[in-house]
Simulated assay, not measured.
Amino acid sequence: MTASKIALVTGAARGQGAAIVRRLLDDGFRVAAADVLTDELAAGTADLGPEVLPLALDVTSAADWTAAVARTAKAFGGLTALVNNAGVLHRAAVADETEEAFERSWRINCLGPFLGVQAALAQLRTGTGASVVNTCSTGAVRPFPQHAAYGTAKWGLRGLTQILAAELAPDIRVNAVLPGPIATPMLDSTTQSRLAERIPAGRLGVPGDVADAVAFLVSEHASFITGAELVVDGGQSLTIG
């Protein structure tokens, strides 16, 4: 293991986050795996050894973020990569949307990554090759009906990624992955089947597809890439309707 490669990954208990943790571990990172789902996180990381540090983290809490970054730095000696993967998918027609649900989507999907960057900034600036990857969505490329809360939050995160990339260069690279339909618990089986029929690639994505994209963006192979948006959707964005 190389001590200089240290990542903090949110939403790490399952799905894409769990896949990202394992992929970065394979690439020689030490990984702080963070999630609000602490029981699932503990079970999912139990076999990964001392190079993975499970952390309880509510991404909407600045205090939680401060504690998570401090624990990561204490355990591993620093932080070189932040992967803002935590998110929630929320659907509702505009007429049925509530103030509470709309705000919750924004707090988790957009405010959370902002608080994470703020909390991690000092640690990221002390290392070399530091990077941030934000998980956006194809919902930030095209409009999906009944996704006002989720879609606007992801559009906001897409804009935040661009602003951070411009502001934090050259010390910290900031990029985004924009997954399309990925086979995770966020999509029920009926939705997965419906979406798979319309993907040009002929299948849904799997968490490893997103993990591979993240691994590239935090690696030295992407050292000249910042402010980029890597769409991982099997061609979904090419379709109409």
Score class of each variant (00 low, 15 high):
residue 1 M to V: 15
residue 2 T to W: 13
residue 7 A to M: 10
residue 7 A to N: 11
residue 9 V to S: 04
residue 22 R to G: 00
residue 25 L to T: 06
residue 27 D to I: 03
residue 29 F to Q: 09
residue 31 V to C: 04
residue 35 D to W: 05
residue 35 D to R: 02
residue 36 V to Q: 07
residue 39 D to E: 15
residue 40 E to V: 09
residue 41 L to H: 00
residue 54 P to D: 08
residue 55 L to D: 01
residue 55 L to S: 01
residue 58 D to I: 08
residue 59 V to D: 04
residue 59 V to A: 04
residue 62 A to V: 03
residue 64 D to M: 11
residue 65 W to V: 09
residue 65 W to G: 01
residue 71 R to Y: 04
residue 74 K to S: 11
residue 78 G to I: 05
residue 83 V to P: 00
residue 85 N to A: 08
residue 87 G to R: 02
residue 87 G to W: 05
residue 88 V to I: 14
residue 90 H to Y: 15
residue 90 H to D: 12
residue 91 R to G: 02
residue 93 A to K: 07
residue 97 E to N: 04
residue 101 A to W: 06
residue 109 N to W: 03
residue 110 C to L: 13
residue 110 C to G: 02
residue 111 L to Y: 06
residue 113 P to T: 00
residue 117 V to N: 01
residue 121 L to N: 01
residue 123 Q to A: 14
residue 124 L to P: 00
residue 125 R to F: 08
residue 132 V to R: 02
residue 137 S to Q: 07
residue 139 G to W: 12
residue 139 G to P: 01
residue 141 V to Y: 10
residue 144 F to S: 09
residue 145 P to N: 13
residue 146 Q to C: 07
residue 146 Q to T: 05
residue 149 A to L: 09
residue 158 R to V: 09
residue 163 I to T: 15
residue 181 P to T: 14
residue 187 L to K: 01
residue 189 S to N: 12
residue 191 T to R: 10
residue 197 E to L: 15
residue 200 P to V: 14
residue 200 P to A: 11
residue 202 G to R: 05
residue 204 L to A: 02
residue 206 V to P: 00
residue 207 P to A: 07
residue 214 V to L: 08
residue 215 A to R: 10
residue 223 S to E: 12
residue 231 V to S: 07
residue 236 Q to G: 03
